[in-house]
Each structure stands twice: as C-alpha cells, then as structure tokens.
Amino acid sequence: MKENGRKQGAVSPCAACKLLRRRCAPDCVFAPYFPADEPQKFANVHRVFGASNVNKMLQELPMQQRGDAVSSMVYEANARIRDPVYGCVGAISSLQQQIDVLQTQLAVAQAEVVHLRMRHIPF
C-alpha cells in the first residue's frame, strides 16, 4: 500500500527531502507533491522560491488547495528558469501577440471572403 507516494515502512525520501538531504518524515508536507521520481520538479521550485517559502505557503493553505498551489509554483518556476526576467508574464505576452496576429489574419481572410462573394452575386 502507498501513502503519500511512498510505500508504507519505506525510507525512500521524497524529491524535496532528498535534495535538502534530510530525513523524510511520514507527515512531510512536500512528499505528496514532489515524488522521488520527479527530482527536477522540486529542484526548480526550490531554486526560484526556496524550500522554506514553499513550506510556509503549503502550511498556510487548506489541504484541498495545496495541489493547485504546487502546480502553479512548478509552472512559474519552470517559466522563470527559461526566462529569468519575465517568467510567466513573458510567455503570456508572447501568446497574446500570437493571438493578435492571428485575429488580424482572420479579419483579412473574412474580408476577402466577403469581397469574393460580392463579385459572384449577379445584378
């Protein structure tokens, strides 16, 4: 049987405890979200936010919100690793620019369709 991603009785530390070189307690706040087989996930979060801050954030949240918070931290940390200056904002800005270009192209295509239909209407 597994508990928090670990076998009961096993001493295999979660990715966080392994990176921090500490014993992984049965009630480890990191274990459910940073399994041992995904070490880079915690490494990036730790690098951007720091283990102490992540621990505090998770402790302050209700259990049902922690998974979403970890997903957000992982996403932001990965974005910050790729783009240390803008992080998620850079990705969002790039996507918004792509949307603007595509909307312009769509408007041009729609105008061409209207123009072609008008040419084929007999008077």
Rank of each mutant, 00 (worst) to 15 (best):
P26N: 11
F42K: 09
E60S: 14
R22V: 02
Q8T: 08
M57L: 14
V74E: 00
Q8S: 10
K56H: 11
A31R: 02
Q8W: 02
C14K: 00
V85G: 07
Q65T: 07
S12E: 14
E76K: 05
Q65V: 05
D68W: 10
A43Q: 03
C28D: 03
Q8N: 11
Y86G: 15
S71F: 10
R66C: 10
R6G: 00
C14E: 01
A31Q: 01
P84T: 07
R66K: 13
D83A: 11
H46C: 13
A69Q: 02
V89G: 08
V89N: 11
C28G: 06
A69S: 06
P13N: 01
Q8R: 13
A91E: 15
A36I: 04
G87Y: 05
M57W: 09
V48R: 09
A25P: 05
A10F: 01
N55A: 15
L61A: 13
Q65R: 14
F34I: 05
E60M: 15
F42Q: 10
Q64L: 11
L61H: 04
R21D: 13
V85Q: 13
P35R: 00
A77Y: 00
D37I: 01
G90W: 01
R47C: 08
P32M: 00
C28Q: 07
D83V: 03
D37Y: 14
R6T: 01
M73Q: 09
R47P: 10
G67R: 14
R80H: 06
I81H: 08
Q64G: 14
V54L: 05
A10W: 04
Q64P: 10
V45R: 05
A16S: 06
Q40G: 11
P35T: 04
P26M: 06
K18E: 02
R80S: 15
V70L: 03
F34L: 05
R23L: 02
P32V: 01
K18G: 12
K7P: 05
V70Q: 01
D83W: 14
S72M: 11
K7S: 11
E38A: 14
Q8V: 09
M63R: 15
A51G: 15
K7I: 07
A25Y: 07
E38R: 12
M63L: 13
C17V: 02
C14M: 01
E38K: 09
A43E: 13
F42G: 14
L58V: 03
N53C: 07
Q65W: 06
Y33D: 04
E38D: 11
P62R: 02
C88K: 10
G87M: 11
E76C: 13
G50P: 04
P84S: 08
V11I: 08
G50L: 03
Q64K: 15
V48K: 11
N44L: 06
A10M: 03
Q40V: 10
N44E: 15
R82N: 12
P35D: 06
L20E: 15
G90P: 03
P62N: 04
E38M: 12
V89W: 13
V48A: 10
A25M: 12
R21L: 08
S52H: 10
G87F: 03
G67N: 09
L20I: 00
